Amino acid sequence: MDKSEKVAILSMIMNFSIFGMKYLAADVSDSIALKAEAFHSFADFIAAITVLAGVKIANRKTKAFPYGLYKVENVMSILISLVIFYSGYEIVMEIISNNQEELQNSFIAIVSLLISIILTFAFSKYEMKIGKEINSPILIADAAHIRMDVLSNVIVLAAIISSMLGYPLDKAAAIVIVCFIIKIGFQILRDGLKVLLDASLDYETLSKVEKIIITMPQVIGVKSLTGRNSGKFKFIETSILIKTHNLDKAHYIADRIETLVKEQVENIDRILIHYEPIRKEQVIYALPLTDDQTMLNEHFGEALSFLFVTFAAGCNVAKKVEIVENPFVTIEKGKGILVAEFLAQKAVDFIVVKNGFHSKGPEYVFANSNIEVIVTDKESPAHIFEERKLQLKQEESL
Rank of each mutant, 00 (worst) to 15 (best):
P327W: 01
Y364P: 00
K335Q: 15
L338Y: 01
T376P: 08
L338V: 00
V321N: 05
E298K: 13
D377A: 13
F357W: 06
E372S: 06
D349C: 08
A318F: 08
N368A: 13
G301D: 11
I323V: 15
A367W: 06
V353L: 10
D349F: 09
E386K: 09
I384V: 11
H358K: 11
S359Y: 12
K346E: 13
K319H: 15
N355M: 11
T376G: 07
A382S: 12
H358W: 05
A382W: 04
G336R: 03
E379N: 00
V329K: 04
E322C: 11
A344C: 12
K335A: 13
A347N: 14
N316W: 00
V309S: 09
E322H: 12
N368C: 04
V317E: 15
G361S: 15
F385E: 00
E363T: 01
F308V: 11
E341F: 02
H383F: 08
Q345Y: 04
E363N: 10
H299R: 09
I323Q: 11
K333F: 04
G361V: 09
E332I: 12
T376K: 11
E322Q: 15
G336C: 09
F385G: 02
L304V: 04
V365Y: 00
E302M: 05
N297C: 14
F308Y: 14
P327C: 06
K335I: 07
E363R: 12
N370R: 01
F306H: 05
A318V: 06
V329P: 00
E332W: 07
K378C: 04
V317G: 06
R388Q: 06
L343V: 14
K360D: 13
E363L: 14
V365A: 04
E332C: 11
A347P: 03
I331C: 07
V329T: 03
F385R: 02
L338A: 03
A318Y: 06
G301I: 01
D377S: 15
E325V: 09
N355H: 13
F350L: 06
A344F: 07
R388V: 00
S369A: 13
I374W: 13
V365Q: 00
V317D: 12
